[in-house]
């Protein structure tokens, strides 16, 4: 029997739908209370959230670490560049200091001596390894002539061989065609210093009776009018006296290493300079 002719099930469902929130609002005791029906979901939600939090925390941590690494790498690269730049500057400064020391020594030498000198820089070496010459950056334009002596503050280097307008070829004392008149500083024994190879010379035409010992200093005699008197050439490295020979075999090592010369002086006018006393005192 249905007097009003409506579906009772639908009405009841509708009342339930409306009543459920109203009932739950009325039964809610406080804003922070969780109902019994909510607890399992809260638990599960907490677990899920915890998991996601851990995961997202891990992702965030990894991302942050990666980003930090990128930054660190960038910073590291920057610091490395700075370090390299500073090292390069340090090396350049050391080179400058060495050059400064060298040039100061050259300047002192030039100021102290009475000789008329022309400072020059070494540009290149000979095309053929059998010929020992160097090219300097001064030539006839600067007053250079063939046969002028070339020295450093330590000793004799060679002499001008082929001067050009703005450069000159210097025949080193180690070249096999180089000859310089020399004397042993200690005993005053005389001989001719001849080039032999890249690092040695020979003192020739020395009488067997002469007193020569290993370590003796050979200086310029000044007789050849090329080098000033008493300028160091080489040190005696080997002395041999053979019965059948008239003269002694004396091998020398130049005081100036030809491979390490960077700056030289060309003597335009020796002004009769005699450096013998200073050399003797230095010994």
């Amino acid at each position: 029997m249905n007097f009003l002719n409506f579906n009772l099930k639908k009405v009841l469902l509708f009342i339930c739908i409306i009543a459920l929130p109203l009932v739950s609002i009325n039964t809610q005791q406080g804003p922070r209370d969780t109902g019994w029906y909510n607890k399992p979901f809260s638990f599960l939600a907490g677990m899920a959230q915890g998991m996601f939090f851990s995961f997202s925390d891990g992702v965030r941590g990894t991302t942050s670490l990666y980003l930090d690494l990128i930054n660190i790498k960038r910073e590291n690269s920057k610091l490395n560049d700075q370090n390299k730049e500073l090292q390069a500057r340090l090396i350049a400064n050391e080179e400058l200091k060495k050059e400064n020391d060298r040039l100061t020594a050259l300047l002192d030498f030039k100021q102290q001596t009475k000789m008329e000198l022309v400072a020059a820089r070494v540009m290149s070496k000979d095309l053929m390894s059998d010929h020992l010459t160097i090219q300097i950056d001064k030539g006839t334009h600067h007053g250079l002539k063939a046969g002028q002596a070339v020295i450093t503050t330590e000793g004799a280097v060679g002499y001008i061989f082929r001067p050009e307008a703005f450069s000159a070829q210097v025949l080193l004392i180690t070249d096999r065609y180089s000859v310089v008149d020399g004397i042993i500083s200690r005993s005053r024994a005389r001989g001719i210093v001849e080039g032999k190879n890249q690092s040695t010379c020979a003192l020739k035409y020395v009488e067997k009776t002469e007193d020569i010992q290993v370590g003796d200093l050979v200086v310029t005699s000044g007789i050849d009018n090329i080098f000033p008197k008493g300028f160091p050439i080489a040190k005696v490295e080997l002395v041999e006296s053979k019965s059948y020979s008239v003269s002694m075999k004396v091998e020398l090592r130049p005081v100036v290493d030809p491979d390490k010369i960077e700056e030289v002086f060309v003597i335009r006018n020796a002004a009769n300079e005699d450096r013998t006393p200073r050399v003797s005192l230095n010994q």
Partner: peptide
């Protein structure tokens, strides 16, 4: 020739240079 006598000498030093000529 300039490379062999000057550049090589200034950069590498007294080590024997290649005979480019």
């Amino acid at each position: 020739c300039s490379f062999q006598t000057t550049f090589w000498y200034q950069v590498v030093g007294s080590v024997a240079a290649p005979m480019l000529w």
